[in-house]
């Protein structure tokens, strides 16, 4: 599948998820299902973070250390830009000194 076709299919899928909430608003969803769905993004994001960090090919722990400290920055500041910029700065500093 070409990248443009992938983008179109992905757009349709994400839009369908967004629309399904409005469509199902009058339906009754079992509380257990609703509760489980609420944790899916947290679980998937964690899996992506861990997989991305574990799959880095430089063989050095700099990325993992920078990400751990960036998580601390995100916890303290609650700002996405501070987490991303702080994490990159820490990573570059670690590469310079170690």
């Amino acid at each position: 599948m070409s990248t443009v076709a992938l983008i179109l299919v992905m757009a349709a899928c994400v839009y369908a998820v967004r629309l399904s909430g409005f469509v199902l608003a009058e339906a009754t969803i079992p509380p257990g299902w609703e509760r489980t769905l609420g944790y899916v993004p947290i679980a998937t994001l964690t899996a992506l973070v861990v997989a991305s960090l574990a799959g880095r090919s430089d063989g050095m722990p700099h990325g993992i250390v920078a990400a751990a400290l960036a998580a601390g920055i995100a916890r303290l500041t609650r700002r996405a830009w501070a987490c991303i910029a702080g994490g990159m700065l820490i990573y570059w500093l670690l590469r310079l000194v170690a």
Partner: peptide, 10 residues
């Protein structure tokens, strides 16, 4: 990753 949007849409 977008299941949260289903809940918000609900």
């Amino acid at each position: 990753l977008n299941v949260q949007l289903l809940l918000l849409g609900l």
